[in-house]
Design a protein around this nucleic acid. Sequence first.
DNA 1: ATGAAAGCGCTAACAG
DNA 2: CTGTTAGCGCTTTCAT
Lengths: 332, 332
Amino acid sequence: MRHVATLAGVGIKTVSRVMNEEAGVSEATRTKVLEASRQLNYQLDVTAGSLRRAGRRTLSVGLLLPSVSNPFSGEINRALEDALSARGIAVFAASLDDDPQREQSIIAAFLGRRVDGLVLTPIAKNQSYTIPEHSRDLPMVFIDREPVGVDADAVVTDNAIGAAKAAAHLLAHGHTKIAYLGDRTDIQTARERKRGFLEEIGRAGIPSSSVPIRENLHDEETARQAAIELLTSENPPTAIFSSQNLVTFGTMRALKELGKNREVALVGFDDFTLADMMDPGVTVIAQHPDRIGVRTAERLLARIDGDQEPPRTYVVPSELIQRGSGEIRPPA
Amino acid sequence: MRHVATLAGVGIKTVSRVMNEEAGVSEATRTKVLEASRQLNYQLDVTAGSLRRAGRRTLSVGLLLPSVSNPFSGEINRALEDALSARGIAVFAASLDDDPQREQSIIAAFLGRRVDGLVLTPIAKNQSYTIPEHSRDLPMVFIDREPVGVDADAVVTDNAIGAAKAAAHLLAHGHTKIAYLGDRTDIQTARERKRGFLEEIGRAGIPSSSVPIRENLHDEETARQAAIELLTSENPPTAIFSSQNLVTFGTMRALKELGKNREVALVGFDDFTLADMMDPGVTVIAQHPDRIGVRTAERLLARIDGDQEPPRTYVVPSELIQRGSGEIRPPA
DNA sequence: ATGAAAGCGCTAACAG
DNA sequence: CTGTTAGCGCTTTCAT
């Protein structure tokens, strides 16, 4: 920057003004500076500037995801990127893998980079989210989980309502024996989905004690086994609601293996690629990770910009997508 | 840091040494400093340090992807994260969307953050990759594309060999009329795949002029239409090789619509989730984005560490995965 | 409209 | 083994 100033024959502060597009520079000097910086291939150093910038803004935020390779996370990452890059904010993403220790060190690493904000997406099992005391005033938005011990915004899917929609849909198609296949009970969203599902079943006058429930299914294989057990029991369900993608996949496998994929109805929570290409197409309660990401970005930016409203939780509605599997009727 | 030094009753440099785990600090003072930093919730500022650090390392790298929401990109991103975080290096990822303008501004943004290296993943159509002259000596690794105009390492899949394997597989199952459905011809990898495919066909003594070829298919819908045209022509192919995921999806749709999914063989380039759940399971030439990512990280770190070897291209082998669709035999 | 000086938090270089 | 000084590239503050 000094070099540019010298070459342009102006003070260093003028160069700073031009590079930051601040007002109060005559068009003539602006041109001079721009020309000089072009000649020298000069590029403003964002990080160096952060050292003195008001509020020490680094123009970067940290994003904690289950894994950057997970499709749901990817969508959120992308939506966030789009919203934040428009403001010149870059995002550091990191994968948690449900490992509390990893979580700690990632948060520490992000704090060490003085990020302007944090987005936390603990969709899976992880319980901790121990934000260091001293960074409680860092702008933060939680996704899919109500923050505990921190005052912060959250953006969540209407898990209970979505699950209730699934139940209502199956009930409307004549099912009365609908099984619930769920994720680990220590996951808040899983509990919400179960609650919504059972409440809707209850509203239909069906005692929840008669609902086949299998929980703590954490991967395709355990889900598949649970589904097979259910489906081969003496009084098998005529429909299944699966609370999460991997559980849905496992259930699909079980149905196919047993040749029941066209007999037993299935509604899964969470959409996935090629769901419409399955046999039959899989009816799902779709979340909208893109909208979640957009809303998250909006809240994070508001907080970064000094919004002092009391934190609240924003709900992004889910959507029932009919593709065939959820419209199968029970045998007469 | 000054505060910590004062509290611990030591010089600021000693604190720096402790925080950076440098040698030459007595255990006693080390403990004192650590205790003080704990009391003050002190966390080393990585970016501030970069200002004076040898080589001005920012301990961050930039990653340009087609889109962070694309599964292939996600895998690479993840592998990179794992390898780099072990060295305390954080990664900025950004999505290109095949937009050369966006590419330019992202590179500029990364340079403005003084990243220690760049990984460029231009899997798709994008042609430009105009790296500014002055950053030619920045450590850089290209993925899936030989760098043009820059001396840099590249990590690629064995596209031609993989495609040849697909052709050989179909030939071995008795097919002689195998169609090629390909992506845009301005994409290097697409050309490579076509070449490998046709060469293998040629080796079998089949004139390439008799091979039905449809190219410049850039999404599911155009691929679907092309496949339908081919399959409803007077002399339809008995097998199809699709050069890329979206093309494979479109082809699958076409086959299903025409009720030919169990008659016409299909091998797709690139693996995808639930490929085994299709009817029939889809045989693919799988790439290994994780291995690509690992190798990329290894090269990037080597360059960052000063490796001066002449740049070269590293090939990661693809793998044929049989799932049913590729093992369909032609009608007798 | 422009610039000079100070200093952000840190590390390199050099003392001691 | 430890500390002092200088200065990285920038923005703030305050002059002019």
